[in-house]
Amino acid sequence: MEIGPYLMLASLEGAVTAAVLALTAVGLSLVFGVMRVVNVAHGEFFMLGAVLAWWVTGLIGGHPALGFAMALVLVPVLVAGIAVAADMTILKRIAYDPERTIVATIGILYIIQQVTLMTYGPEARPVTPPFNTRLALPWVEFADGAPRLYWPWGLSTTSYKLGVIAAAGGVLVGVWALMARTRIGLLMRATQLDRDMALAFGIPVERVYALVFGIGAGLAALAAVLIVPIQQAHYLMGGDPLLLSFIVVIIGGLGSLPGTVLAAVLIGLSDGIISVFFSPTLAKILATLLVALVLVFRPQGLFGARPR
């Protein structure tokens, strides 16, 4: 078989990674952008999303799609609620001081991880996808000078993977609309631009912070619910998404949402392609190298605005 079909397959796998990564990283970027704090526990909110998705789907019998739909709605809200509680009880107390917030969220990371280990246990558990039809993919070949579609053997994806990509795209559009088109988005952007002036114009900054922290965690949880039918839930699964989100957020420009999405697509796709043709390790090495280069030559990120 020629290289084209492989490339398409690798790109599709990469697009699934990119979709989930974009959601997770946008959550991290939103928190950093508005609150100016680094949330080291972000990956654990992702992990909680996956574990709670397993739990919710287990509670609800019937068709797998029913439990999954419930998980998709309930789990992000639950995780957002936990994050809001952590914000109000911990981060607010330390006045969102950047250094102390890093230490505090490291603490939150271990608490969430260990509580999950004690309750959910060390096993990796699967979630049944709501739908999972195998879709054979066509490729073009030239026979007698005319293009013709054919279905190479082994070139396929699943309807669920396409569903993940579509859902992530939909949610990202929703986040954009929230920020750009709604009243609460306006207040969030004003808070991001100038916290003191936001206060001087009556914006309840602490409530905005709690909301943003909740939305950020909720997005990570949503990403995890989407990926758990492909990847399984495990209490240590939060590490990779955290690292990759940081990579993406740094490359995209800290706090820049469009930059974050673009960088997620870049990293996700190249991760998929390099993993298929070379090795997953090489993909991680190259991504990390790219971060180093970005930090040296363009500290504001590839798509971030220069600090004024």
Binding site: L186, L193, F201, G202, I203
Partner: peptide, 18 residues
Amino acid sequence: RLFGELTVAQNLEIGLRV
């Protein structure tokens, strides 16, 4: 100290909201 990335209309909306 305007909200620099927001428009004139949005800056005024924030004032009106108070």
